[in-house]
Design a protein around this nucleic acid. Structure first.
Lengths: 208, 208
DNA sequence: TAGATTGTTAATCGATTAACAATC
DNA sequence: TAGATTGTTAATCGATTAACAATC
């Protein structure tokens, strides 16, 4: 059984921000970058940055900081972003169009190979070059294209139904943009991006 | 100074899921709903649900559970979802279209009153009925329409620049969908939805 | 060398979970 | 009444922060 509780989850969530900053340093031909600097830029504590970077296995140099190129490699390897992953996207609406259009995902190994929808008008069309197919073809196309990730962007009411089809197609990782908790087998991992959670946070912060 | 660290943040993030489930119970004319049931549905511990609901001030009845209608009211009031809030959306692209199309936000008090973009082709058009204006009109329109929230959906490279304009327009709450940390005055609150963080989590989970 | 920065070890803080009396 | 469920108080767990020796 794949455990859904990931150790050091908050650290993992911060790594992409570090990576972005470190890539900027690389573009400016810096050979080293210090945790102190990263912390200042992102308004974090230096000790937190050092602890977070430590999970990638990188070792820094006192007084200099971390070597930029090896640090980038270490973060990308830790996140498995140096490996290409094929993804299908279920629901070819505006959110799907936004996601397939993010070039950043591609540079981090995420490759959209097909989109699926039930609306007959969309068939034969594409979103940012990703062809749209009928949902019924999900299993066949998944095998054919070697997809290992499913991105779920359908209306919430169809979330579970689509999740079942995704599981049926043999996909073991779901990126769930609906606000529904999915019932899934233990060997399928799921990352939920719940926008209503974020909105709730914003509302509470506004009242402080 | 508004503190950005919110106590009980994880609890707040879970409340919307509870609310959704409790609304379903209401639709089925249940008078009470137990924390035990909510926990089972969402794969959480009952004690966690009880603790979370306690922050809303609701009091349950032993053996029965929580009274559904007062519980809904308590959660909505705690999240300030019983108050209408006007929002502008900066960047009228696919993500903006997706967000303005979510009916759920409207039922939670979020009312999009205007969209802003710099592309001249988009002027005079609308997304889900929300008119698109030139970014230069942000300050004027914000005052005119009484907007208190800005939703930022522009490409990352323009994030800080747009944030500065949002601050200039007098808006004190930003829902930031770019992957950039924004530099903001202390009295402006910001909720960041970092999709690359979520993707990082999914990647690490896949490797377990 | 002097001093900034690292990595380690310990302390603190906050969130989750456990135990259990109260109660409808 | 008996038993399921609540709310409180305490224990555990994990993440953040602090202190500081090591070092380039």
């Amino acid at each position: 059984m794949t455990r859904q509780k990931i150790p050091a989850a908050p650290s993992i969530r911060r790594l992409p921000s570090y990576l972005h900053l470190i890539r900027q340093a690389e573009a400016e031909d810096c050979e080293f970058i210090s945790g102190t600097l990263i912390a200042k830029e992102l308004h974090l504590e230096p000790i937190q940055v050092r602890k977070d970077l430590a999970i990638t296995g990188i070792v820094g140099k006192p007084k200099r900081g971390y070597p930029v190129k090896p640090l980038i490699a270490a973060i990308e390897h830790f996140l498995d972003w140096d490996n290409k992953k094929n993804a299908v996207i279920i629901g070819a609406g505006n959110l799907a169009t936004a996601l397939t259009g993010y070039q950043e995902f591609k540079t981090h190994g995420l490759n959209f190979v097909a989109a699926f929808d039930t609306s007959s008008e969309k068939m034969g069309k594409n979103i940012h070059g990703v062809s749209i197919y009928p949902l019924d073809e999900l299993t066949v196309r998944t095998k054919e294209l070697g997809a290992t990730i499913a991105v779920l962007t359908v209306p919430s009411t169809f979330a579970q139904e689509c999740a079942d089809r995704i599981v049926e197609a043999g996909i073991k990782a779901i990126w769930n943009f609906t606000n529904r908790k999915l019932n899934l087998p233990d060997d399928v991992v799921c990352q939920r991006e719940d926008l209503t959670s974020g909105y709730a946070m914003l509302c509470v912060m506004m009242g402080e």
